[in-house]
Structure formats: structure tokens, C-alpha cells
């Protein structure tokens, strides 16, 4: 008998969103379907709905982020919640307060939801186990572990352009080793029934036994990109690099940077994705990033709708 998924309540409904791993397909599909409705809300005169009126959502960012924090903030505001942003790297923890003390103090301020970004894998789980039962936790990225809303917005973007997951060949390219985004993407693609998931990276940037996640490993872009429908680029995580994993950024670009020449191996209508922030000229060529196959900016826009869906589903469960 498997232990109950800590993200689900007694009715099997999503109570926290910590990782995509272990979530059933119908929960992911429900989030994606709900996000469709929030896309149309954003196209209206008034881009707001009253669902979370009176709820207090705390963005707890122990690690820097602009895009993720901003899109969570916009999403919460468009749901009419009150949003409080805390960049804690620079605040209490530097004065010695523990993570859970910070959470307790904010809970005493009647928090209804925490959106947590932390450099330590498992930080969001720790908070989810600790908080009162009416409080919801969304993992906005923990260490190398998971970034579930990024994974979901990527799935939403793929579905918008490619519709049927069960006929797709998807390649994830770059620094898989340090990437929580890659892990969340791989889990989501598997749950949604994508039959062929490839990872393309040098050996030094792949986790050991990555095949166990259900992916095919390639070390060569021409082979790995051949006939794929979706190319998901990853950021080369400079700040996470320790030691000599790579000869140089230039060397990486030569072999693994996405250029028009390499992209030509993919299907003619393949889409190019990137979670941002991009290192132009390191993992992706500017011409491709701005090219007609790029859906990098739509990813950002859809990210708001997906985060609205996640927050409104959690708050209602």
C-alpha cells in the first residue's frame, strides 16, 4: 500500500502543489482545462475575477526570481486575492530566523496560501507538512527538485500548439542535471502520455540513471532533435555550476546551443520553448529565440493563466 500523496486531501483533491510526480492525469488535465478559461479572462476589459476575494497569498521567495514571482503576483491579483511579496533572502533569515518560524509568523497574519521558492530541495514539502490544514502551499521551485507550475505551463503551451500529447516526440535540451524544470517537464510529459521523451545533454550535465525517468538519452543534437515536435531548451545554470562540468560556455553553444541549423533536424513545424531567463548565444541563438517557431513569450503569458488555475483549484479544495 502506497503512502498517501502529501499533496492530496482525503478526497483525493489537490490541496498543495509541490511536484507533478505522482499526480494523476485527470488532475493535470483539470488544471490545463481551467487555465483555458483564465486565458479568456485576460483578454477582457477587466482582467480580474472575484474568486479569491479576501484571501491572503504570500509569495515567499528565498531565492531570486523575476518572472515566476511576477507572474504569481499577477495571477493572484487577477483572482482578487491580496498578495504580499517577501524576498526573504535579504530579510529575516539573515537575522537567524528559521524557515518554519518565518512561516508561523506569516500564518499568524492570516495567510491562506504560500507560494514558495527556495534553493533547498524539499523546502515546500516541509512547509506543507507544517502549516495548518486550511493553508495551501504552491512550490514555485525548490532546489533541483521540482518546479511544477513551470511544468504545467509548458504542458499548456504544448497543448495549445500541438493538441494531442499521445502523438508527440519531445526533446529537452541542456543542463538536465541542475534543472528542476526538466524534472517537472519529464514527469508531466509522462503523465500526459507523451510516447517519446528525449533528453539531449553532455554526460556531465545529466543525472545518473536519468533513463529511469522514462526518457531516451542523446548526446548529439542532430540525432536527438531528428523529427521532434517540441524542443524544450533549458537555461545553462551558471550559478549552479561547481567545478569543471563544461570546458566553456562557447564550447557548450557549439555542441548544444540551439541554432537554426540544428533546429532544421526537428519537424518543420516544431515549436521551441525556453523557461527563461535565456542566455542568448549560450544555449540558444538569438535568431531562433526570436524566430517564428519560438513560443517563448506565449509561455510567459500562459504561465499567468496556469497559475490562476492552480491557485483557484487549491483554494477551492
Amino acid at each position: 500500500m502506497k503512502k498517501r500523496n502529501p499533496q492530496l486531501n482525503a478526497n483525493g483533491e489537490l490541496h498543495h502543489l509541490l511536484t507533478i510526480e505522482g499526480l494523476p492525469r485527470d488532475i493535470l488535465t483539470h488544471i490545463l482545462n481551467t487555465a483555458e478559461s483564465f486565458v479568456t479572462v485576460a483578454e477582457r476589459e477587466v482582467k480580474k475575477v472575484p474568486l479569491l476575494r479576501g484571501k491572503a497569498i504570500f509569495n515567499l521567495f528565498f531565492e531570486n526570481s523575476t518572472r515566476t514571482r511576477t507572474t504569481f503576483e499577477i495571477a493572484a491579483k487577477r483572482l482578487s486575492a491580496d498578495v504580499i511579496n517577501l524576498n526573504i533572502g535579504s530579510s529575516s533569515t539573515s537575522k537567524g530566523e528559521t524557515l518554519l518560524d518565518t512561516v508561523d509568523n506569516l500564518s499568524a497574519m492570516q495567510a491562506d496560501m504560500f507560494v514558495v521558492r527556495h534553493a533547498q530541495s524539499g523546502a515546500a514539502h516541509l512547509i506543507a507538512r507544517h502549516v495548518a490544514p486550511h493553508i495551501h502551499v504552491v512550490n514555485a521551485g525548490d532546489g533541483r527538485h521540482a518546479h511544477p507550475t513551470q511544468g504545467l505551463l509548458d504542458m499548456f503551451t504544448i497543448r495549445r500548439y500541438k493538441e494531442d500529447f499521445t502523438r508527440l516526440r519531445v526533446a529537452i535540451v541542456g543542463d538536465i542535471l541542475h534543472s528542476r524544470v526538466a524534472r517537472s517537464e519529464i514527469h508531466a510529459l509522462n503523465v500526459l502520455g507523451v510516447p517519446e521523451i528525449r533528453v539531449i545533454a553532455p554526460k556531465t550535465l545529466l543525472p545518473t540513471e536519468v533513463e529511469q525517468l522514462g526518457v531516451h538519452v542523446y548526446h548529439d543534437m542532430a540525432q536527438g532533435l531528428k523529427d521532434v515536435d517540441v524542443v524544450m531548451m533549458l537555461r545553462l545554470q551558471n550559478e549552479r555550476m561547481r567545478g569543471a562540468l563544461l570546458p566553456s560556455a562557447g564550447e557548450f553553444f557549439k555542441h548544444y546551443g540551439l541554432t537554426a541549423d540544428k533546429l532544421a533536424h526537428a519537424k518543420y513545424d516544431a515549436i521551441v520553448m525556453h523557461p527563461g531567463p535565456m542566455n542568448r548565444g549560450i544555449e540558444i541563438d538569438s535568431g531562433v529565440a526570436d524566430g517564428k517557431q519560438s513560443v517563448i513569450l506565449p509561455q510567459v503569458t500562459f504561465g499567468i493563466a496556469v497559475r490562476m488555475a492552480v491557485m483557484s483549484i487549491l483554494a477551492g479544495n
Binding site: 481551467t34 479572462v41 475575477v49 474568486l51 483557484s312 477551492g316 479544495n317
Partner: peptide, 16 residues
């Protein structure tokens, strides 16, 4: 998204 019973029953499972 405008129902007044959201806090009692949550989000409708099939929003279009």
C-alpha cells in the same frame, strides 16, 4: 468564476 458558493464547494470541475 463568479459563483457565490466557491468558498463552500470550490471551483466547478468543468469550467469552460
Amino acid at each position: 468564476f463568479y459563483r457565490d458558493d466557491f468558498s463552500q464547494i470550490g471551483l466547478h470541475p468543468e469550467v469552460e
